[in-house]
Each structure stands twice: as structure tokens, then as C-alpha cells.
């Protein structure tokens, strides 16, 4: 019987787990260069891992903040007094979650092969080019003058386009779709995202209205009593 402390130490010093993690993380580099082959093996051959996927996702969120903070002010001007970096990060994280959930919900209806976990892992792997390009790009921007901003914008947009193409191939491979079906699936996913966002807003506004109702009821009672 191991003690709790022992188990924690084991968890963090598990050589085999680390090896698995780094191997699956390194596999992301293969995926972004060989998307069709890579995404197929990622889920069907279990070459990727949830840990590595989450690592890439968190790295992407941090990259977004890193870019805003450390790009030279000549290219991106951020009002640091007003900026909220949590909001900036949520601006990527929330669409990502809604995309994955909606996509999974749709593809279960249209005989997609991927599970929710598969879609999550593949989508996160598809974001790899973003931190990979934007972090060096941000550091490099500090050696550029205002006239040379094209380089900065080009590499940033390039990473986004690359990611977008990877997203498409990820959906295609995970669900074993044809290209046409993938496109239709993605369009419907966006429509579905809009529906989900609408329902969420409706839900929160109803909840807050209900809360306000009970609060005003409480106030009414309090005023009557005193």
C-alpha cells in the first residue's frame, strides 16, 4: 500500500508517462507537415494524447497573450490599463470548446467516427502552427521598424491559415469523411455554434431574470416586515 505522498511523487517522476507525453507532443510536428496521414494515425492509431493536446491548447492561449504583450508597440498597440488578458484568452478558449462540442454533436448524427475526445485532441493538434510561428514572430518583431510590419502580419496570418487548413483535415480524418462532406459539416458546425451561443445567452438572461424576480420578491417581503 503506497502513501499518498508517495503516489504524488510517483506521478511526477513516472519516466514512462513523460516519454509518452513527449512522444505524443513531438508527433504534433509530424501532424502539421503530413496532415492527412498524421490526423488519421493521431486518433485511429492512438499516436496523440489528451495531455499533449491540452498542452498545445494552453500554449496557444498563452501565445495569444504573449503576442499582445511583447510585440513591439509599432505593430500592436494595447491599452494596458484597460486590457484584460483573461478575456483575451477566453476569446479563443470559448469558441474552441463550442466548436468541438458542436462538431461532435453534429457528427454523431451524421455518422462521424470520432468521439468527443478524438475531436478535442485533433482540434488542439490543429492549433500547433499558431504558437510555433507566433512566438518567434513576436520576439522578432522587436527587431523590426514600423515600415517592416508586413513581415509580422504575414507570418501571423500565415499561421492562422495553416491552422485553418489543419482544422479542415482534422475533421476530415477524425470522422473519415470525404472532402465535400467535411465542408458541409464545417458550415453546419458554424451554424450550430451560432445556435449554441444563442441558447447560452437565452439561458443566462433567463436565469438572471429569474434571479432578479426572486430578489425583488425578497426585497418586497423585507420592506413589508420592517
Amino acid at each position: 500500500m503506497k502513501t499518498k505522498a508517495r503516489r504524488i511523487v510517483d506521478f511526477f517522476t513516472n519516466r514512462a508517462a513523460y516519454d509518452r507525453f513527449f512522444k505524443s507532443l513531438r508527433y504534433a510536428l509530424y501532424v502539421i507537415l503530413h496532415p492527412f496521414d498524421g490526423f488519421w494515425d493521431l486518433t485511429h492509431e492512438k499516436r496523440g494524447s489528451l495531455a499533449a493536446a491540452n498542452f498545445i491548447l494552453i500554449l496557444s492561449l498563452l501565445t495569444c497573450v504573449f503576442r499582445l504583450e511583447f510585440t513591439t508597440f509599432q505593430f500592436i498597440k494595447v491599452n494596458l490599463e484597460r486590457a484584460n488578458f483573461l478575456v483575451e484568452m477566453l476569446g479563443i478558449l470559448l469558441p474552441f470548446i463550442i466548436f468541438v462540442v458542436t462538431n461532435w454533436a453534429l457528427t454523431t448524427l451524421f455518422d462521424g467516427k470520432g468521439t468527443l475526445k478524438d475531436v478535442w485532441i485533433a482540434s488542439a493538434y490543429a492549433m500547433t502552427p499558431y504558437p510555433l510561428i507566433v512566438i518567434p514572430n513576436t520576439i522578432l518583431s522587436n527587431f523590426l521598424a514600423e515600415e517592416e510590419d508586413t513581415f509580422n502580419y504575414f507570418f501571423h496570418d500565415f499561421s492562422l491559415v495553416w491552422s485553418a487548413l489543419l482544422f479542415i483535415s482534422a475533421i476530415m480524418m477524425v470522422h473519415a469523411y470525404s472532402i465535400g462532406k467535411t465542408m458541409i459539416c464545417i458550415i453546419f458546425t458554424f451554424v450550430g455554434m451560432a445556435v449554441v451561443i444563442f441558447l447560452l445567452l437565452l439561458f443566462f438572461s433567463l436565469i438572471s431574470d429569474a434571479g432578479a424576480y426572486f430578489y425583488s420578491l425578497y426585497k418586497e417581503v423585507i420592506f413589508r416586515i420592517y
Binding site: 508597440f73 527587431f143 514600423e146
Partner: peptide
């Protein structure tokens, strides 16, 4: 220039400095 976000002039100064 940096204090007042004057990127045009900053860019010129930076190029010379570099």
C-alpha cells in the same frame, strides 16, 4: 516617441538606431 505611441517617428529612430 514610445511614451506617446508615435510609431512613425519611432520607426525612423529605430531604423537609425539599429
Amino acid at each position: 516617441f514610445k511614451i506617446k505611441y508615435d510609431d512613425d517617428n519611432y520607426g525612423d529612430a529605430f531604423q537609425l538606431y539599429r
